[in-house]
Design a protein around this nucleic acid. Structure first.
Lengths: 269, 269
DNA sequence: CGCACCATTGATATGGATCAATAACTGTGG
DNA sequence: CCACAGTTATTGATCCATATCAATGGTGCG
């Protein structure tokens, strides 16, 4: 049955990839197998298997030798670092279609991070050794990995920057901005994809501080009710932007963007 | 003359690589060209050039399109993120033989970081386009890059963890520990490779706090005089260790390590 | 010798953590 | 359908660590 599940997955994936080929601008999260032939994909996944985890369960323990590259079929997880005293630092928060341990299996040595299921989660587990071997023989695949890992690296750089140089309110605004650009930037409604306390920890603050930051940000034209927020207009988050995020924003360098037209050249929406 | 400089560099590099082949355990920083044939190396570097920068000069501006992968021939640099208000977050601090923009050129879009020369620095600049093209055709090279970038990623994860969960003294101890393991772990003398204020910023604290943390750490058997420090014995830094760093430490899991023998299984020297 | 720059030390202020209590929400079983 | 327990979020009061401000000392360089 696990074998069959993998087959179904491959089938689905290939079908989706055909659809995706028509949408040129869709090159984001699921690019691991882009340009990899069905034949090779079969080979790579032939000894993979599905596995279920319950909410709260550790999928990978910090310090363990990484054995799989994992692909989230359903559910949500987070990668984190924890200390013996119980402190946690959230590194990434992931949902369906995203991978983890993709970077770790190339680091050598035990995993510097742990992975925890935030809810009941099903994961496709691809043996690390297969991935490494495959990468050595398929430069296209290696470059896909490179693209994914550099994206993680970029995110972690921005995370460091946020925590070191920004106030809690600014961090929150920056997070919302990226969320907004992620969830289709013409949509004025954003839904929080994770629990508030989880996001708080990801942003390097306590839930209390997160809550107070929310109150602050409400004043600037954002309505928040439970996990749904509505922006008054598309530009309320503009002053949280920076140069590299602006490059992703379709509204940047238009006359509508208050920062771009402001003309200081620094970040804009 | 720049052409010639590159040729000299290639020649030197290949000679060193032969030497390196004899030292099996040396697979660290300069692994970018490992396993890449001289022929291909020539090709890759054929349109590269050397460039000099003076202390304090920006080598890459945050927000610029990255045009080169750079290799430090001599001098020191740091990669950083800065805000319009003048706040800086140091991401990495690099010396001779290390590369920068290695990850950035695969991110797509403008550079999320800037690079500044900390002293007069000479850099080998390899066109980004050549690197990308080469990676697509040489899976060995792509995997080298993968290894380098994942190492950066691991460092940034540890940096996030440090800043979020550790006190200034602990951060400093952890930094010293890694420095110690880097500079040959049988050596009880460590020299600080960068200016204190630079390290302070890298560790997410002010120079004042750094200075006070130094005073704290002196009490536990470390003598610091200017930029040179001497440890009383090889185990004074042990309690700053964690699981993944322990994996690199030759003294871990020996009877000498106070934490390993302590037997809590968590980090050890 | 004197000027910059960097590090150190002390005094003070403050932002966010912590502690504590309440409120809202979720799901469960009667 | 409601009552209840468990979890998560909010709000207020307090405290403390680290930033900030300010002054001094040391070091290297012209």
């Amino acid at each position: 049955m696990p074998e069959k599940a993998v087959d179904v997955f491959i089938h689905d994936f290939l079908k989706k990839q055909q659809v995706r080929a028509k949408n040129i601008d869709d090159d984001d999260k699921t690019s691991l197998f882009n340009g990899v032939s069905e034949e090779r994909l079969q080979l790579l996944l032939s000894n993979s298997h599905m596995k279920d985890f319950t909410a709260g369960q550790m999928i990978v323990e910090q310090g363990d030798q990484p054995a799989y590259l994992s692909w989230i079929v359903s559910g949500r997880t987070k990668t984190l670092r924890y200390s013996p005293e119980g402190n946690e630092a959230t590194i990434r928060m992931l949902g369906r279609g995203e991978t983890f341990m993709d970077a770790v299996i190339f680091m050598g040595g035990p995993s510097p991070i742990g992975v925890r299921a935030l809810e009941d989660t099903t994961v496709l587990m691809i043996p690390a050794e297969s991935v490494r071997r495959h990468a050595l023989h398929d430069s296209q695949f290696a470059c896909n990995l490179l693209k994914i890992v550099t994206k993680h690296y970029r995110d972690s750089i921005q995370q460091i920057d946020s925590i070191v140089t920004k106030t809690p309110v600014e961090r929150l605004g920056y997070y919302f901005l990226k969320l907004h650009l992620d969830q289709g930037s013409d949509n004025l409604d954003i839904s929080l994809p994770f629990q508030k306390s989880t996001i708080a920890n990801y942003l390097g603050m306590t839930p209390e501080t997160f809550s107070r930051a929310l109150n602050q940000i409400k004043k600037s034209g954002i309505d928040i009710k439970n996990d749904e927020m509505t922006m008054k207009d598309a530009f309320v988050l503009c002053h949280f932007c920076d140069t590299d995020t602006a490059a992703v924003c379709p509204k940047s360098n238009t006359s509508d963007c208050p920062l771009c037209t402001g003309g200081n050249g620094k970040g804009c929406h």
